[in-house]
Design a protein around this nucleic acid. Structure first.
Lengths: 140, 140
DNA sequence: ATGGTTGTAACAAGAGAAGTTACAACTAAA
DNA sequence: TTTAGTTGTAACTTCTCTTGTTACAACCAT
């Protein structure tokens, strides 16, 4: 089980916007060409990023822009914008309360799952779009 | 997108084995009753745990046993036994090499993804079955 | 008004999760 | 040697999610 490619696509989108928004109009078609996916997929992800107030989109005339400085956009922001699940793990739902393990498994595991998820989110929070952009520029 | 319930089911299975293996025969039917899923699902997960040398199964006569002490079984061991994906994220596969971002996105993101995954795995490695068992016993 | 956009709906194909039935193979014990 | 309980698997179904696609109304600077 993997996360969908929406996360890496969204990151790609934002890097392109950060890189090109001052030079040219960044449309879903342009983005779709760089990412190599269908423009509708870009528009849907762009919609999620817009709902999360990470980008602003000019409807009609076209073009996407960062809604705040790239220093203030983290991988966690991006991840939460495109992956709506609250919990990382799907817990089996009806353990048998007549079994001592079935009765207690949830209270034992719930905080472990939260700890694991927090560790992941902490790393994501440490990585900003601005850092990704700097690294991308270095490698060009 | 969530991980399948195989991980929490596998953990449940191992807690039951650790708790009951000295008292009674722990069969897939018994486990299925505690977890409240179909015995075939239990047998499949038990098969993964057996391949990973976490449990031993007596075919024919029946019954599952820990293959090593519960102190030496971590959540990461369990996770890797039941989730076969190498990478946590599905990367979009064909970014356009003619775009400066498309060309560099992989080399910029790959190590970030690895860092994030490592953080998650590190937390999992810190939690042993024996600790879960102790906590479960406390709560009974 | 026009043309290039965006926002969405609708649909299809494919993958994976989860549940179920069925049955061959195994093994201890009667 | 048979039997009963169990494991290991195959086959199939149902769901849900992802990804890709077409189509089209709504939008808006020029």
């Amino acid at each position: 089980m993997q996360f969908s490619s929406r996360f890496t696509i969204a990151t790609h989108i934002l890097l392109c916007i950060a890189m090109f928004q001052d030079e040219r109009k960044v449309t879903s078609n342009f983005l779709a060409g760089s990412i190599n996916v269908n423009p509708v997929i870009v528009r849907n992800i762009l919609g999620s990023l817009s709902s999360a107030k990470i980008v602003e989109i000019r409807s009609g005339v076209g073009g996407a822009f960062l809604a705040r400085p790239s220093e203030e956009i983290t991988l966690l922001d991006i991840f939460k914008a495109v992956e709506k699940e609250e919990s990382l793990f799907h817990f089996h739902e009806n353990p048998n309360p007549e079994c001592p393990i079935g009765r207690t498994i949830h209270s034992v595991m719930d905080d472990k799952i939260e700890t694991i998820q927090s560790a992941m989110e902490g790393e994501m929070r440490d990585i900003t779009l601005s850092r990704l952009l700097d690294e991308a520029k270095e490698k060009m």
